[in-house]
Amino acid sequence: MNDVGLVSAAWRTLRRRPDVIVAALIVLFFAVMAAFPRLFTATSPRTCAIREARLDPQGWGAAHPLGTDALGCDVLATLVAGVRPSLLLAFVVVGASLLIGVTLGLLAGYYLGWADYLISRTIEVFLVVPLLLAALLLLSLFKNVDLGAGTFDVILLPAVVLILFNWMGYARYVRASVLEAKNLDYVTAARSLGASDLRIMFRHVLPNAIGPVTALIPTSIAAVIGTEAVLSFLGIGVRPPATSWGIQISQGSEWVLGGAPHILIAPLVCLIAAVLSLVVLGDALRDALDPRLTA
């Protein structure tokens, strides 16, 4: 019942901040777009006419409201089609690396000794190996494997690569703040009461150590979407014919000075809007869940 109190208090605090409501609406908007792309465009992203390439935005109601890209595909249609893989990839990658990073960081910081030694060295190894090199290696491994064309299937390869090279940051942050939190008196108090390591870790250390990590999440979502574009050059990004914002941004950037900046601007605005909204939401959520800040 206490949790209910905290959650309803959290909701009360959220409601008082208009920027939070705007951010929530934007995130909701993209979520709907990912779930029901047909609501936003009737055009298929795959019907591209090369003679209609790089048309300027024509305004709402016209055939190509946001214009067309370098291959003559409708920008709005590709944008809408890219929401689902982009956001799904971002959440899967960040979620999985968070899980791995927090677990390993917690173990390393809490137990120190050989566990810390092992985990810290692993982190360093992963930091040293270049992402692209590892990506190429994986590419060659999965070259001839048919992964299918489902929503999950198209992001599987980039997800694996990105998770493998994304968890270290979280692990390091968590390890550092666990080192700090575990020597506080309330942790000692729990230990003197005979609490188990598991209880101390999850009740006392982690809730007070996770703060700096949550601040990383929104920006790393943006980074994941951007990195995916790079991977797509190597053929292990989101699999064509599926598309993503990352691919659109990297293609669009070639035409910024070629008279068609809208090809870049449209996906970039969407990415920035989504990330900023997540930053605001994450911030508000953290404040709302901290009992010290709810009067």
Binding site: N2, L184, D185, Y186, T188, A189, A190, S192, L193, G194, A195, S196, R199, R203, H204, P207, N208, D290, P291, R292
Partner: peptide
């Protein structure tokens, strides 16, 4: 044990009833 610093010896994210009841839970 009773600790020195009442500002660091209580977990800021737990309510007083959770803190005082924790020994029972443990």
């Amino acid at each position: 044990m009773v600790f020195q610093d009442p500002y660091t010896s209580l977990n800021p994210r737990m309510s007083v009833s959770e803190i005082v009841g924790e020994p029972f839970a443990i």
